[in-house]
């Protein structure tokens, strides 16, 4: 993947302010490429990096990363052959079993994911699935609440990368497990909304193995001049399709071997 940039520093700041406004005040904007058709994925990451710098300067703690576009179907749909990544902060975390407000979100959707917590630094290039498993402290079940700030979830990769991979909220919980005690490839997952099963799958849906997605994330970080420090929290990508939620909805994600994670949505 090329990280070549075409936008001026001025344009990047301008787009970052636009994204930051849409994220903090929860409104939809047109995709950025409408105004900047020549914008590259590198430009998208430049905006995302500037957004992260601003949040950290405001006191948010950068706790880790998320991988997106980790299924073959989604990659083909977006015309790419690598996942996208976004950063995660403490402000996006919500506790298990809590009431999550949708008032500060645009059009939230939920996905089941396997999350990793690392105990050793990871750096690319050429980071492998085995490196990731060696560096993992534990895995846990998680639900990511994604929320594209683009009207009607209509976007291209350049815009979604700038919008921090649609990151919005996340809930970790369930049962922490040592990945060496599990087959991380065949974990079954069921997502229920209001008592009805709405999405199902097994963890191999994420690039064949969730640790493979984390390895690719580490290699993308290398291209951005970053590494993954010990103690990072990483969401490896949606096993199930994203399901829309609204106030009044109860969601529970049930994972083989990892227990469950639940939450409810309110105004």
């Amino acid at each position: 993947m090329s990280m070549e940039t075409t936008l001026t520093r001025e344009d990047i700041v301008r787009l970052t302010e636009r994204i930051e406004g849409a994220q903090t005040r929860a409104y939809a904007i047109p995709k950025l490429t409408n105004e900047y058709p020549a914008m590259t994925i590198g430009d998208g990451y430049a905006v995302q990096t500037e957004l992260r710098r601003r949040f950290v300067a405001q006191g948010h703690r950068h706790v880790g990363w998320k991988a997106g576009l980790t299924s073959k179907a989604k990659m083909q749909q977006m015309g790419v052959n690598v996942p996208s990544i976004g950063f995660l902060t403490d402000r996006m975390a919500r506790p298990e079993n809590s009431a999550i407000s949708t008032g500060d979100l645009v059009h939230p959707r939920v996905e089941c994911e396997v999350a990793f917590v690392t105990r050793a630094d990871l750096a690319g290039p050429n980071c492998t699935k085995e490196d990731v498993l060696d560096a993992t402290d534990y895995v846990l079940p998680a639900v990511e609440i994604i929320d594209s700030r683009f009207s009607g979830f209509k976007f291209d990769l350049e815009s979604v990368v700038a919008d921090n991979g649609s990151s919005a909220r996340y809930v970790g919980g369930g049962r922490a497990r040592d990945p060496r005690d599990l087959d991380l490839r065949t974990l079954g997952v069921v997502m229920e909304k209001n008592g009805e099963m709405v999405a199902m799958g097994a963890s191999a849906a994420v690039l064949g193995h969730p640790a493979e997605a984390v390895a690719m994330l580490v290699n993308i970080l290398t291209e951005l001049g970053e590494t993954l420090p010990a103690g990072s929290f990483v969401m490896s990508g949606g096993i199930t399709e994203a399901i829309a939620v609204k106030p009044g909805d109860n969601v529970i994600a049930r994972f083989q071997e990892l227990g469950s994670v639940s939450m409810r949505f309110v105004d």
Partner: peptide, 27 residues
């Protein structure tokens, strides 16, 4: 074995074809 939550991974000619889970069958 957790037959309800056991994952199902199906590969065709060495490539992932689809995934599923026991719960897909009548819960």
């Amino acid at each position: 074995l957790d037959i309800t939550l056991a994952g199902m991974v199906l590969e065709k000619n060495g490539e992932l074809f689809s995934t599923g889970v026991g719960a897909a069958v009548q819960g």
